[in-house]
Design a binder for these strands. Structure first.
Length: 827
RNA sequence: GCGCUUGUGGCGGAACUGGUAGACGCUGCAGACUUAAAAUCUGUUGGAGGCAACUCCGUGCCGGUUCGAUUCCGGCCUAGCGCACCA
């Protein structure tokens, strides 16, 4: 803290300021904003420490990827909104943690390096500096001492440490799975790097390729990720989107025996399928395997049409993801030489392969019930297979009947409804030892390997003798090595494979020759636990101390984009639960409340993008109108959770409003407020407080405008009214509020002042305007003292000239009264 | 196809648990100040009719519940986002 507080008001008295007014035509936001940003920085105004005497409040916004383009106007929308929340909470006496950092690993820096040769660490550092400068220029109340960056070895040391925990607990494993492969870039792509089935970078169509990948078993947590949403204050669409994404379904696994063409059973060969409708098993007329199913190669010797099958499998593998999902016509090949035996009715049915069956879901094989599944129906029609109706309803000659109906043609299930049929079918399967109830999820395990450079090295070593071994904790962080270039090689190996000195190492277990893993982690890794690091960012012994976690966790309010709902938000909830299971964090969920902001579009409703040339740079707005106007406008632009369109005209309106607040000071005077003055003030306090809590920032600003309009109309503004205005404005326009607070002769910082408390009694009007309706149609209004006797109000309403004319002698049937609001005469 | 969200003046948007639709801001129009313009200030601004008092219409469309519906219910339509052959 500086000792000379008078520096804040430049040593001038209030009277001197008022005299100087004529000199200052217009509010000089540049000087004012620089001045206060420097004071906040010098005094570390927003630095927080654990203080057990105060209740904590942890406000979090998603940290940005520091791109070369800098901030766009979308970022500050949520940063400002939560800054408003943080500032208000601080003034309400909470110990507020509002941190910021950088999600700094990622593709753009690496692509930039491939193009220019500039090391990603260098360009990233420059970008972080630029972002920091921009964020500071907008006046956010972040505790900059806690800033972190995921690409900092001191940070990713712990990301790697946690990966090893996943490995130790058996949740990180290596598996050969089909990944998205760009044949032109010769690189594996993450799902999020595939746009409409094409490579995001070069536009080539993406194909599937089997590759060994590190996987993390998020599916083990699927049930808990759904169930634990229950107690959380997340906006509904986030909850439903996560639930749909996890995609829990209940059904059964059924084993179908396999036979050769003559019907002789193949020993030990069972075809297991997953179905949500085991009760329709009497309608099964054929089976389908995914082309990648293990039996396709395992049983090859039995097939009579080997060539045809091989050709189909190859074609399916070559098919792009795009072709495979877009093309809903059904193709396939029968596996001639084998049959399946339906365990419910003993029928022998043909077995096909087709790419409409997915390898990653269920068992990669289905029992086809063409009468009651449209996809099976289409396939049956294409291959001329029988269609047996087992549920009543619909017209099977036209299309599949996918609704419910009583069971028919179904042996012991006949006549049962869906619920009873399901139970009977599963019971029968269990008794006869060919099936079991089974819950399935759409959620897949998390593909955790990227054949890239700019990410956290996966801290694993492969030894011929000992298999995969984690790097010892004492060797963490395992730092990224220098490489000659950042391009992946022809086998699709990560650029790290080129750093031979780094790759060749010794086995931590046996000391023999070993090779390091050369894939790196996805950029979702570092962001999965960053909110924990903010609690204790400089700790070099632990990722965060127990004391810090106990005090600061959970995040009380977390805001971020809807696009992260099924990625970052889900991953981080999972990651946190894993740490909870290890006893490393105190809570089973990380975030108490989750909200989401809408995007900001260009004024014509288009997305802002470099190629369209319609991007608005916050720097320009800040330098032309000031940070306070920019912040206030971003809050006023529209409902926070919905898309909004940028408008220069509306920005001007807010600029005028901010100037008005500045200009009002010269009308302040040491006079006592009237009852009407207090009413306006308390109304504003109540509205602004409530609307900030409810995330309705646009109407909070409206309330401030209404109050300012009231003050403008006064000849003299009682000081109390203006000082209260400054406090209410301070979360939105902190620089101006501090400046005017100082000019009003205050030595304190307004951020350390207490938030005003509204008194509903004082905010109440003492006369009310009551609408008078006849049969619900407005016919006039009457002025009454608040809570006047009902009879008086009714009499006055009935006496209204227009009411008498409209009624024209009709008898009044009844009168409905809503006290202080409405008198509705039913005639 | 499935899930979610949205639809209100010339524009962005208000309206609490069903109770005076259009707060607040922008734009437009008229006026004040100015030699003039900018800036600022004042008034006005959903549509139609009327000198006026007032009246009629009006919250995507059709219907329903209600004394009363932007709000609740049923059925459609539009736009946006997400997922997508999930058995």
């Amino acid at each position: 803290m500086t000792d000379d507080h008078s520096a804040r008001h430049n040593g001038k008295s209030f009277a001197e300021w008022q005299k100087d007014w004529e000199m200052e035509e217009r509010y000089n936001f540049r000087t004012i904003e620089h001045k206060w940003q420097k004071i906040w920085e010098d005094e570390k105004t927003y630095k927080v420490e654990i203080d057990k005497n105060k209740e904590k409040f942890y406000v979090l916004v998603e940290f940005p990827y520091p791109s070369g383009a800098g901030l766009h106007v979308g970022h500050p929308r949520s940063y400002t909104a939560l800054d408003v929340v943080a500032r208000k909470k601080r003034m309400q006496g909470y110990n507020v943690l509002y941190p910021m950092g950088f999600d700094a690993f990622g593709l753009p820096a690496e692509n930039y390096a491939i193009k220019t040769g500039v090391h990603p660490a260098v360009s990233t550092r420059a970008n972080i500096e630029n972002f920091t400068r921009q964020l500071k220029s907008i006046g956010f109340s972040f505790d900059w001492d806690r800033a972190i960056s995921t690409c900092d070895p001191e940070y990713y040391k712990w990301t790697q440490w946690m990966f090893i925990k996943f490995f130790e607990k058996g949740l990180a494993y290596k598996d050969k799975i089909a990944i998205n492969w760009c044949p032109s870039c010769k690189v594996g792509l993450a799902n999020e790097e595939v746009v409409n089935g094409c490579c995001e970078r070069c536009g080539a169509e993406v194909v599937r390729k089997n590759k060994e990948q590190w996987m993390i078993a998020i599916t083990k947590y699927a049930d808990r990720l759904i169930n634990d949403l229950d107690g959380l204050d997340f906006i509904d669409r986030v909850k439903t989107q996560q639930i749909n994404w996890i995609g829990r379904s209940e059904g059964a696994e059924l084993d179908f025996g396999l036979t050769d063409a003559a019907g002789a059973p193949l020993a030990d060969k069972k075809l297991t399928v997953y179905t949500t409708r085991p009760d329709t098993a009497f309608g099964v007329t054929y089976m389908v395997l995914a082309p990648e199913h293990k039996y396709v190669s395992e049983l090859e010797n039995l097939f009579e049409n080997k060539e045809e099958i091989r050709a189909y499998v190859e074609a399916a593998a070559k098919k792009s993801e795009l072709q495979r999902t877009m093309d809903d016509s059904k193709t396939g090949v029968e596996l001639k030489g084998i049959k399946a035996k339906n365990p419910y009715n003993g029928e022998l049915i043909p077995v096909f392969i087709s790419d409409y069956v997915l390898t990653g879901y269920g068992t990669g094989a289905i029992m086809a019930v063409p009468a009651h599944d449209q996809r099976d129906y289409d396939f049956a029609k294409a291959f001329n297979l029988p269609i047996v109706q087992v549920l009543e309803g619909g017209d099977i000659s036209e299309q599949a009947w996918e609704e419910d109906g009583a069971h028919v043609n179904s042996g012991f299930l006949n006549g049962l409804n869906k619920e009873d049929g399901m139970k009977a079918a599963i019971d029968y399967a269990v008794e006869n030892n060919f099936g079991r109830a089974k819950v399935n999820f759409k959620l897949r395990d998390w593909v955790f390997s990227r054949q890239r450079y700019w990410g956290e090295p996966i801290p694993m070593v492969y030894c011929e003798h000992c298999g995969w071994q984690p790097v010892p904790e004492s060797e963490l962080p395992l730092k990224l090595p220098e490489v000659p270039d950042y391009l992946p090689n022809d086998e699709g190996e990560s650029p790290l494979a080129k750093a031979a000195d780094w790759v060749n190492t010794t086995c931590p277990k046996c000391g023999g020759k070993a090779r390091r893993e050369t894939d790196v982690m996805p950029n979702w890794a570092g962001s999965s636990w960053y909110f924990l690091r903010y609690c204790d960012p400089h700790n070099d012994k632990e990722f965060a101390s127990k004391e810090a976690l106990d005090y600061w966790m959970n995040v009380d309010w977390y805001n971020g984009g809807m696009e992260h709902t099924t990625l970052h938000l889900l991953y981080s909830r999972f990651w946190h639960k894993f740490l909870y299971d290890l006893g490393l964090v105190p809570t089973k969920e990380p975030y108490n409340k989750r909200t989401s902001h809408g995007m900001i579009l260009a004024s014509n409703g288009e997305k802002m993008s470099k190629s369209r040339g319609n991007v608005i740079n916050p720097d320009d707005i800040v330098s032309s109108y000031g940070a306070d106007t920019f912040r206030m406008y971003e809050m006023f632009i529209g409902p926070f959770d919905q898309v909004a369109m940028w408008s220069d005209e509306s920005l001007m309106g807010v600029y005028r409003f901010v100037n008005k607040i500045y200009g009002l000071m010269k009308k302040t005077a040491p006079v006592a407020p009237s009852a009407a003055d207090l009413r306006a003030m308390h109304k504003c306090i109540l509205e602004v407080s409530e609307r900030i809590d409810q995330m309705r920032f646009n109407t909070a600003v409206s309330s401030l405008m209404t109050y300012v309009n009231y003050l403008s109309a006064l000849a003299e503004i009682p000081e109390e009214l203006y000082l209260t205005l400054l406090k209410l404005v301070s979360p939105f326009a902190p620089h101006l509020a501090e400046e005017m607070w100082a000019r009003m002769g205050k030595d304190s910082l307004i951020v350390t002042e207490s938030w005003p408390v509204g008194d509903p009694k004082l905010a109440e009007e003492n006369t009310v305007t009551i609408a008078v309706q006849i049969c619900g149609k407005m016919r006039g209004t009457i002025e009454m003292p608040k809570d006047a006797p009902q009879a008086e109000a009714e009499a006055k309403a009935l006496a209204l000239e227009n009411v008498v004319r409209q009624l024209s002698g009709r008898p009044v049937k009844k009168i409905i009264v809503v006290p202080n609001r409405i008198i509705n005469i039913v005639a």
